[in-house]
Design a protein around this nucleic acid. Structure first.
Length: 632
DNA sequence: GTAGGGTTAG
């Protein structure tokens, strides 16, 4: 009887439900009162036909007017599922927390919403709360719950929450579900607990392609690139790699800076992967990054030119690559091309684009341009400057001697220079470096260092090293000693320098300062002697000011300088490659001024091109000069 | 009586 008051779904406004009248009409609504209870909810078929959240909400409205039905709970669950998939998370959350009268939400409903929340960056924390809410309602999480809660934990690096999930998983008997194990593995490696992820992986009764991909990517995330490539090889006896696999493999090659290995990976993509992988934007972006990080910017550009489609990241990878290689003009040109509508694919730059652009200005010493781009970033593109952008600007200003202006910028920053350790340190280092170079005066420099130390950076070596440089440059050796004592009292150590070089078929040789562990160590030091004799004959005088603190602790300044890791790697390169071949070296820290001088001279005396990738950028040494124009 | 896992550039 009361059904006469309902609006029939067939009479809904036609734009909302066009499918209903044309294709596969659902069973008629009317049936006898008795038999209705035995069947599915009459509105259920409409769910599969609904194409928009408006239609889904109309079904919800209908359901509210329907008489009680034993399968209302199923309809409710399915509604939440469909509406959350349609993107209206607020609506489905309301539906979950305020269900129809007399109904309690189901695990299924929670799962649906947790999944949708775990896919949105900002709502990930809420998915964890939903999980707790679910437990409070005595609903049991299941094999569809854990993967998504773990995904959120991975993203948020919520290591304690995730570990507790792990024990829930064990308790509830889900510890052999492959989906759950894969998600757990991903979670552990995102939190840097590799060994745990590896343990899990090794103990898996069954692995699929995703398990391998997660493990390989986990190694890459934790910096274990060689292991990643080993796994990549092992995996192939069981699964062919897909775009995800290649993505990680390329990333590992890029990080290792091993050009021939990277070229091999590229060849692998071209030979063994299908067209969808070869044309994949992400894969091509990784290739651009790979070649620029391996020192072959020409090849990076070629990949960029030849890829079928480009996105912001493609442009960013190119701009950052050109900048890293000191090709300032090309980098800025690429930016202009990106924002102009040349090929019909005008793109909006993002904050990373501007890191590339501002670094280019910094690299080229372009103060006015840097300021112009910084302003346009804020005013024209509405991008809020981050510490990294301020870092570039501060560096540009300090290098140009505008120290007061740089300090003013730091003062007016909307983020404190102590949030991110690395960047904050760079900001103060830029200023202190400039203070040293420009003889800003010890008192002034001390005041700057004082401010740096106040900003929670006390436990880092960088500021102390710089402060000692300030004193050393003013010949105030008592203070140098004082700083040194302070450092040793606080147990502060400098990060050890490490350089690597790839010789032949992808074999990477690694050196630390003063290393004598290499099998060819004797030959390396002999070569180093020869090189240095030649250099001295050519009039070279070592500059020891760059090895201020740690070197002096040993009491043998020049000796320690002579054994810098990059120097050992270059010497090894000289004895292990054919005359005229390019020597490519990778260093974890910035190259020191003296090693930089030496590399320039070696490039001339031995007619070798030497490419050094340090922490910040590439140095191409050719015929006695460097692409960075001694500006880094 | 419903459903699913893993990415890029600093």
């Amino acid at each position: 009887m009361h059904r006469h008051h309902h609006t029939s779904p067939h009479s809904w406004p036609s734009p909302s439900l066009p499918a209903l009248s044309s294709t596969s009409p659902p069973p008629p609504l009317s049936s006898t009162n008795g038999s209705a209870h035995a069947h599915a909810h009459p509105l259920l078929p409409y769910l599969d036909l609904a194409h928009s959240s408006i239609q889904l909400k109309q079904i919800h409205a209908q359901a509210l007017k329907f008489p009680p039905h034993p399968h209302l709970l199923l309809l409710h669950s399915r509604l939440i599922h469909s509406i959350s998939l349609s993107g209206d998370l607020l609506y489905s959350l309301r539906l979950l927390l305020h269900p129809f009268p007399l109904l309690l939400p189901t695990s299924f409903s929670f799962n649906s919403l947790i999944r949708s929340f775990s896919r949105s960056p900002s709502l990930k924390p809420l998915s964890l709360q939903l999980y707790l809410q679910m437990l409070l309602l005595s609903l049991s999480p299941d094999n569809h719950t854990f993967p998504f809660v773990l995904k959120s934990c991975a993203f948020l690096s919520s290591s304690s929450f995730g570990s507790q999930l792990h024990s829930h998983i064990v308790k509830l008997g889900f510890s052999s579900d492959i989906y759950i194990l894969n998600s757990l593995g991903h979670f552990y490696s995102s939190c840097g607990k590799l060994s745990l992820a590896r343990q899990l992986f090794d103990g898996m009764p069954l692995r699929n392609r995703v398990s391998w991909n997660i493990m390989i990517d986990g190694c890459v995330m934790c910096g274990e690139y060689e292991t990643a490539l080993e796994l990549f090889r092992d995996m192939q006896s069981q699964f062919s790699p897909d775009a995800y696999t290649m993505q990680s493999a390329l990333c590992a090659c890029a990080a290792l800076g091993a050009l021939s290995l990277g070229m091999w990976a590229h060849a692998f993509v071209l030979r063994k992967c299908d067209a969808s992988v070869q044309n994949d934007v992400l894969i091509n972006n990784s290739l651009i990054d790979l070649y620029s990080k391996c020192g072959d910017i020409v090849m990076a550009r070629r990949v960029f030119d030849e890829m079928p489609q480009r996105d912001v990241t493609s442009w960013n990878a190119l701009i950052l690559g050109l900048t890293m290689h000191g090709q300032v003009e090309d980098s800025l040109l690429a930016f202009v091309q990106m924002i102009s509508d040349v090929e019909g694919d005008k793109l909006r730059p993002n904050s990373i684009t501007f890191i590339g652009v501002l670094s280019a200005c910094n690299h080229g010493g372009l103060v006015t341009e840097g300021q112009k781009y910084f302003r346009s970033m804020v005013d024209e593109f509405g991008i809020k400057p981050q510490l990294e952008h301020y870092g570039c600007m501060v560096d540009i200003l300090s290098r140009a001697g505008h120290i007061e202006e740089a300090l003013e910028l730091v003062k007016n920053m909307n983020c404190k220079p102590d949030v991110v350790y690395g960047e904050a340190f760079l900001i103060w280092r830029s200023i202190l470096d400039a203070c040293c170079k420009r003889n800003a005066g010890v008192e002034f420099s001390e005041a700057v260092a004082q401010r740096a130390l106040e900003s929670e950076l006390v436990a880092t070596s960088g500021v102390y090293v710089l402060l000692s440089k300030v004193y050393a440059s003013a010949n105030r050796w008592n203070e140098v000693g004082l700083v040194r004592r302070l450092m040793s009292e606080e147990g502060i150590k400098k990060e050890p320098g490490c350089s690597s070089i790839e010789i032949g078929d992808g074999i990477v040789h690694e050196f630390v300062a003063g290393d004598s562990s290499h099998p060819k160590s004797k030959e390396i030091y002999e070569k180093l002697n020869e090189v240095e004799c030649k250099l001295v004959m050519a009039g070279y005088v070592p500059d020891s000011s760059q090895a201020p603190l740690v070197a002096e602790v040993d009491g043998v300044k020049c000796e320690s300088l002579r054994r810098h890791s990059e120097r050992l790697a270059i010497a090894f390169g000289l004895i292990s490659t054919k005359p005229g071949m390019t020597i490519r070296v990778l260093k974890n820290l910035r190259i020191c001024r003296d090693c930089h001088e030496i590399a320039k001279l070696i490039s001339k005396l031995y007619c070798r091109e030497i490419v050094v990738r340090d922490r910040a950028r590439f140095h191409h040494f050719r015929d006695g000069s460097c692409s960075c124009m001694d500006y880094w």
